[in-house]
Amino acid sequence: MCLAIPAQITRIDGVRAQAVLRGNEIEADLSLIDDPKTGDWILVHAGFAIERIDESEARETLALFAEMGEGIGGPAGV
């Protein structure tokens, strides 16, 4: 029902985390997922991580997600 985007956790401070998606850093609340760790890929909806996804799954999403980003220099890595 809602948008959620994949991002990788770069820093955790209590239930709050910083997570990065292609040069964009967002804040995410981790209280809805079990045992989050730095480096984990998460699916973020309205400021909350709603699930953990594994890295290859995240890259699968990002590959689909390249969308209009492919215009310059082909699909960029994550």
């Binding site: 029902m1 239930v15 909806h45």
Partner: peptide, 16 residues
């Protein structure tokens, strides 16, 4: 507003 995706986060803010 929102469905099961959104509501847990809102519940979490109430607990916080």
């Amino acid at each position: 507003v929102g469905f099961e995706t959104t509501a847990p986060g809102i519940a979490a803010t109430v607990l916080q």
